[in-house]
Nucleic acid binder design. Structure first.
Lengths: 339, 339
DNA sequence: TTGAAAGCGCTAACAT
DNA sequence: ATGTTAGCGCTTTCAA
């Protein structure tokens, strides 16, 4: 038979309401009483019934993680964020719900409405690139659902987590410059993703700070996939020995792998003939040979922190903030002194 | 204000219980009445309160998807399965919960118990490689939670989805044999995963059927990662021109990519000098250059079908079955006639 | 085929 | 600091 709150109350010699208070970390419970109740819960292996709590308390104890499955980032990136969100939810005894959304789909708003009507999430976590999709934010606002974003582009009045990607990209490129590289190429990500813009901006910052000119031929379009890295690299390496870059900074690891692939085809040894670096530090980066120099983005932690922001705001622990996590440069074997 | 079942009942001119019957697809409702009720629901944009249903009906409307995050498969594989499970849950108006589990962890059982006590999933979907983890199956049985498996190893009395991986692997290798290859290598996956065993068995079947001897030097250990494919390929290609394979069948796409990588280092052009093929048809396969010949595994559909098996069994639509989905060979550009 | 009453396990509002 | 009462929105049981 199921142990109910009432049973715990009887065991601890208090009223049900007091047990409820303890359960919800409310004030106005003598510490002594609280301990007795907690002990009784423990002893009886009590687990509150989530539906009963939800029904009576008018909240769902659900956090929904929304992501784009149209042109989404690497699945390992989303998987890590998801893990982090889940971890935070577990800490707070919330459950997590995941929802793929097709940005720009005609049924977009309706799908959000269905999600809200059907599951009543207490809060939402938004992941790139839908962190700035206006119709979404608008609808969430209208329906009064608080949300936190992972790496939002517009940061004003926004809660969630960011990393200084621009600064990280700059540091990465400065590393290359420090190794003596002068012709440094950049492979762009998908056009209007925040990540693409920041990484390009950081690339430019570094060049400018070093007084190096930006050569438009060295900045080529990519699309965050391995295949797009391959295409970009062909473009770069076919420039001819003089104009060819000695280093390539790709906007993510998958594209960097594509670049390395093509370098091999051209008979270039890395890092001797060509330095390559990426961004994100996905599992692939450390598997490649030579191991890829990249920027580590703590995706899992970012997911966790974003979720904690909504959860804290739900529990009235302040309005929630926009926290910044540090990047780190993973200097591995794919970058070396310029030839 | 929220529209409740009672409101719908009033609107349709019936009792709440009748609306409840319609909601739950129960018998004993005149078709005419049913239509009236459905119309009222539609008109009022009624959404039943999941917690109220769950509390009163003593079921959670939750399906939990369990996966291993210790030595798990490629994240894109799990992500696809997850999408499929979610799709099935949506169809049945269930919600999906995801739970990473660390196979062999000391707190394994406790984590399952916590999941069950806290969320009361009505059903569970198991993904490789935890589909056959005995302590898990035992505990689920004890707690009376029905489950379905994706690609379980032991199939007796099991419900879920399978694909004939052995036959698929055999067909893949027969394709190579048909191209004139005689020295065909195989890169193994993680030792005791079902996938590794089936794919090896299929490889052997094909060799045996063609009367080709199995050369132990051509079967090398891998671990499903790109990096392990790289290591395996070095071992194979350093065998010397005579003993070296002319084709490599890797147990998954990531390892195949690693093999292709090393082939480039050895100055081998694919598919002219070396044919390479993989298994799974992950996004990477079609991005590689040359595009990878591989076995397509309909992971998303498999997730969906597995979830449907549990869901159907929950709704009393029979006991649930073990369904088999077809594989298909994706013949692309990485395989060609033997040199 | 339909309905009335009771109650699932918890919390809100209001006592004390 | 703690208790009492009345529901939350649905399904169950039983009756009609």
């Amino acid at each position: 038979m199921r142990v109910r709150l009432e049973d715990v109350a009887r065991e601890a010699g208090v009223s049900p309401k007091t047990v409820s208070r303890v359960l919800n970390d409310e004030a106005n419970v003598k510490d002594d009483t609280r301990q007795r109740v907690l002990a009784a819960m423990e002893a009886m292996d009590y687990h509150p019934h989530p539906s009963a709590r939800s029904l009576a308390g008018n909240r769902s104890f659900v956090v929904a993680m929304l992501y784009d499955n149209n042109d989404n980032p690497t699945s390992s990136y989303l998987a890590e964020i998801q893990d982090g969100v889940l971890e935070a939810c577990d800490e707070y005894h919330y459950s997590m719900m995941v929802r793929p959304l097709r940005m720009g789909g005609s049924d977009f708003i309706q799908r959000i409405d269905t999600l809200i009507s059907r599951h009543h999430p207490d809060g939402v976590v938004l992941t790139p690139p839908i962190t700035d999709y206006a119709p979404l934010l608008k609808r969430l606002g209208e329906r009064g659902v608080p949300y936190a974003s992972v790496s939002p582009v517009k940061r004003r009045g926004c809660i969630g987590v960011t990393m200084d990607e621009r600064q990280a990209a700059r540091a990465m490129v400065e590393h290359l410059i420090g190794l003596g590289h002068r012709r440094i190429a950049h492979v762009l990500g998908i056009a209007n993703h925040g990540a693409s813009r920041w990484r390009l901006a950081g690339y430019r910052d570094a060049l400018a700070a070093a007084g190096l000119p930006e050569d438009p031929e060295l900045v080529v379009q990519g699309g965050f996939t391995f295949g797009s890295g391959v295409a970009a690299a062909r473009q770069l390496l076919s420039l001819g020995k003089r104009k060819r870059p000695t280093a390539v900074f790709a906007a993510n690891d998958d594209m960097a792998a594509g670049v390395m692939w093509v370098a091999g085809e051209y008979g270039l040894k890395m890092p001797r003939d060509l330095s390559v670096c990426g961004f994100d530090d996905t599992p692939l980066a450390s598997q490649l040979w030579p191991a890829l120099t990249t920027v580590r983005q703590p995706s899992r932690e970012m997911g966790r922190l974003a979720a904690l922001q909504v959860l804290d705001s739900l529990r009235g622990r302040g309005p929630g903030r926009l926290v910044e996590v540090p990047y780190s440069l993973e200097l591995r074997d794919s970058t070396a002194a310029a030839p």
